[in-house]
Design a protein around this nucleic acid. Sequence first.
DNA 1: AAAGGCGCCAACCGCTTGGCA
DNA 2: GTGCCAAGCGGTTGGCGCCTT
Length: 301
Amino acid sequence: MGRPPCCDKDSVKKGPWTPEEDILLVSYIQQHGASNWRAVPAKTGLLRCSKSCRLRWTNYLRPGIKRGNFTEQEEKLIIHLQALLGNRWAAIASYLPERTDNDIKNYWNTHLKKKLQYKLNDTSSEHCVNVGFGLPAVHRSMPKSKGQWERCLQTNVEMAKRALSKALSMEDPMGSSVMKSMKYEDSHLPSITYAANTENISRLLEGWMIKKKKVTSASTTISPKSSDNSSTSSQMSMSASNCIVSPPTLLGLEDYESALEGSPEATAQGPFQMLESWLFDESADGEEQQESFLSMVMDEL
DNA sequence: AAAGGCGCCAACCGCTTGGCA
DNA sequence: GTGCCAAGCGGTTGGCGCCTT
């Protein structure tokens, strides 16, 4: 007994979406909002399953999505965040306004992973941690012996902290530009580079975006993707924002904490203290701490 | 010019999570 | 407490286009 299919597979269309389908979906969502996906195929007449509709909207049609080449800044931020969070693409995407988790995941798998592997091969393999900025996830480069493993872990934690520090640093043009763009996103619209087949849709949505932007521009809360351009897309990214507070899951919490005890950085003052408790203390109110951490960082900018 | 290889990315699959009755 | 359903998420796949021979 396998899992039942999410939809009636015989009558469901698969493969690339046509512009006509896109328009049907967009106009439905304009009228009814992006909720109750199960009803979407029936109401729109689309021969697609609800999941497919949701995915199409989330990844390509929703306003405010930037497509095309990743900037160097975005690339660096992805690398840093991947080192911190692992393959939690939704969490990473929550720090990159305008990019979807799918996009980031694809970019990581096709470009960044290879790039980093190449760099790693270039550098010495004698140290247990070849992890600088741009390293794979913390849990990836685990040496075999326990002593090595612990040293490695400590270094990784420190690296991760440094990576975030760099990403958030005022001095670092990348960090500041990213954070500032998060803060002031509402004041200047990004250059949207939709793929050819969605260009028309984006034009179609333009008026709607402007209308929605007026409603949301009052919001000044600093949290990942908090300044999404539309109320609908805010809805869509809500879950992604919510999930960023969990610590990496492949290593035990105790391991992280014991590793931190041995690290001089563990006693660091300022934002890192909050970052650490945010990262490592699951029992705490993570969301609240995350908010205050980010607010603190933003205040410093 | 043609064929095969390869990389990229849109879309799918299926597991997990959260909400509700 | 339990089961069901909808939605979220990450891994994987398949097709298309570009590159190389």
